[in-house]
Amino acid sequence: MTVISDPPSKSAKRPNRLFRNIMAKIASIPMVVTALVVFVGCTAWTITYSFTGSRMLPKTKWVGLDQYDRLWDTDRWIISIKNLAIYGACSMILTLFLGFCLAACLDRKIRFESAFRTIFLYPFALSFVVTGLVWQWILNPDFGLQSVVRNWGWESFTFNPLNDPDTVMYGLLIAGLWQGTGLIMCIMLAGLRGIDDDIWKAAKVDGIGTIKTYVVVVIPMMRPVFITSLVLIAAGIIKLYDLVVAQTGGGPGLSSEVPAKYVIEYMFRAQNLGQGFAASTMMLCSVVVILIPWAYLEFGGRKRG
């Protein structure tokens, strides 16, 4: 047993007493408080109170799963989920597809690469509120795109997604893609640059065409990049709120409501806290459903491999 000689550098890393490293512990207090009080405490609080009949103020009147039953019986919630599913599926596929295509285009040794990249990424610096308001204006039926095309002579041209309940989510999608694709393009570009030059040479020697090389060789190699992008896009989709508030306000009617908006409406406007808590717990569940397989792929595999 080597109890006597404990080198100082090791003891700095592996303390076994409370007062070892006391400064580091004091300095970490904000982090510990944040982790325990906000991330664990507040989340647990909300989940707990989603089983109560709280209305204007949080009360501990337990009602079991009543709030959840009521939630899934509410049309507005069902509409919100459906809307988010449409938006999410389209946004996921299109962002990945466009992000990859743009990155691949930029990776073809083109001129003005940095200019193009600057243009594709700048919307990401803007807030969803700004994004929503600009596209609301461009898609304005009386003065925007529709009226311009009609003035060109195509009188019957109709493109008015924001006032049509059936297509309003696609109007949001146009704005959402405009804002978010640049980020995914940047991540994909970094992934493409990480692929060894020899791969390209080998593909060329074997006579495989450029597009086929991308599909057969490069994309499978970029699996981790795609997974990261997927998680990022999914996390963004569940959070979708600002864009809807700014661009459509949930309208026309309830046709562009989303879950995040439902939560806030019920918590802060309708004074039905229990519903808000139940809905936000459902949002949390959806994140968990996405995160667990990802964490398993990312970390579970690495530990064993």
Partner: peptide, 9 residues
Amino acid sequence: IPYQTMLYP
């Protein structure tokens, strides 16, 4: 964690 879960507390 979605911010909505932590807003009210």
